[in-house]
Amino acid sequence: MCDTCGCNVTPGNAKFAYKPVEPGATTISVLQGLLKKNDDQAEHNRAHFDKRGILAVNLMSSPGSGKTALLEATIKALKGELKVAVIEGDLETENDAERIRAQGVPAHQIVTGTACHLDAHMVHDALHHMDLDGIDILFVENVGNLVCPASFDLGQHANIALLSVTEGDDKPAKYPVMFRGADAVVISKTDLLAVLDDFSPDKAERHVRELANPAPILRLSARKGEGLDAWLAWLRSQLAAQRARVAAGRTQRPAIQPEGALMHGAEA
């Protein structure tokens, strides 16, 4: 079924297909992404990262699933090996940025007020407050929300969706847009599995696969340090891949970029 090129129009239904246009009116066929301005800004951000050889990673999850704790543990583990910077997004407070700065790492807090997600323009503004010289990995900790952040490209190279074991293993089935767009899924707080008998990591993984998503599922506890090695290995492999891409003059969009839109010729 095609509503755009007119191939479904027959002599019988043509009179319904082409409504008379009011005098003086002109129809313009546009066929471009509705978030074009955001996407243009996101490309600009990505080019900025690529020029500096930085890997940009967007962390998304519900509030309280352990994004900041994962970052704290990651920064500790990578100290002396890789330089990290963080952009934090929350409706209010500098709390998360302060937690990151306490680890000796530059952090900028975006206070969104009432906005439920970060967009590419907010991240661009934040970049003006940050010195990215020598940075290897920039983490963007999105606003805690399993819905809206999934629709906005920020210029990152990879998306992480966190799912803590206290949330229920069917979250990927309930929030498919978010989990479909994840390049890696982190199942966090696994140290609590011992006392939670109703969360099955295998079931969570099956729900992710049913979204046609082949992303690695990383099970870890940032507090106890369990499973961190696989997460750090994934990060290192992503950074190596980013450096290889930069050397070859290529870039990578996260999985969130709608493939369908590309196939519809909406966005180059």
Binding site: D3, T4, V21, E22, G24, A25, T26, T27, I28, S29, V30, L31, Q32, G33, L34, L35, K36, S151, P172, A173, K174, P176, R180, H207, R209, E210, L211, A212, P214, P258, E259, G260, A261, M263, H264, A266
Partner: peptide
């Protein structure tokens, strides 16, 4: 939330339609 193949049931599929957010046409005066 179930993007599996309707024919063989495999999850290794690609979305060809359903994730678009497109401005198709505008009618201007």
């Amino acid at each position: 939330n179930k993007l599996v193949c309707g024919a063989c049931g495999d999850w290794r599929t690609e979305v060809v339609s359903g994730d678009e957010l497109i401005l198709e046409t505008v009618e201007l005066d």
